[in-house]
Simulated assay, not measured.
Amino acid sequence: MIPAPGPGEDPPPPGAPSRALRVRAAAGWERFMRRAEAAGAYPVGADGYERHPLLHGRVRDTASGAEGVLTAVTHETHDDGRVVRIAHIRGENGVEWTAAADNIRPNDEGKGMRADDSTDRG
């Protein structure tokens, strides 16, 4: 059964989430944040940005081997309710990419490739 709009509330336009879904999503986000805080995770602001200790520092994406500066870590909620941590990295050449935040490590100088190097050397 679909809940009726609250008093003085217009029904959502077609395709928009219902009030009940928005309330449920907000409650789920609050539960996620409480669990993350209890587990010692990094704090997240109301804007969805994580206060990661490597923020604005040189990092290496272990999946690709590319290096750059960590510009942000955001949290994205997928359709199935999972929250995924996304690292935003800017290479020396100015090109930005995203990676799983769990794949980010502090840059070990002299090891790995720089973000502007190509893996194709031929």
Rank of each mutant, 00 (worst) to 15 (best):
A46E: 14
G48V: 12
Y49Q: 15
E50C: 15
E50W: 04
H52T: 11
P53V: 09
L54E: 07
H56R: 15
G57Q: 15
R58C: 01
R58I: 00
R58H: 02
V59M: 14
V59F: 08
R60S: 08
D61Q: 10
D61K: 12
D61Y: 14
T62E: 04
S64M: 02
G65D: 06
G65L: 06
G65F: 03
A66Y: 07
E67D: 07
E67Q: 06
V69S: 00
L70F: 06
T71Y: 00
T71N: 04
A72L: 02
A72W: 11
V73H: 01
H75N: 14
H75W: 12
E76Y: 04
E76P: 00
E76A: 13
T77A: 12
H78P: 00
H78C: 02
D79G: 06
D79S: 05
D79R: 08
D80Y: 07
G81W: 14
G81V: 09
R82L: 08
R82T: 13
V83L: 11
V83K: 04
R85E: 11
I86L: 05
I86Y: 01
H88E: 11
H88S: 07
I89D: 11
R90C: 15
R90S: 12
E92R: 06
N93Q: 06
N93C: 07
V95M: 03
V95F: 04
V95S: 02
E96P: 03
E96D: 11
T98H: 12
A100V: 00
A101N: 13
D102F: 01
D102P: 00
N103Q: 15
I104N: 06
I104S: 10
I104M: 09
I104H: 07
P106F: 11
D108Y: 14
K111D: 09
K111M: 04
G112D: 08
G112H: 05
G112S: 09
M113D: 01
R114K: 05
A115G: 15
A115S: 14
D116L: 01
D116A: 04
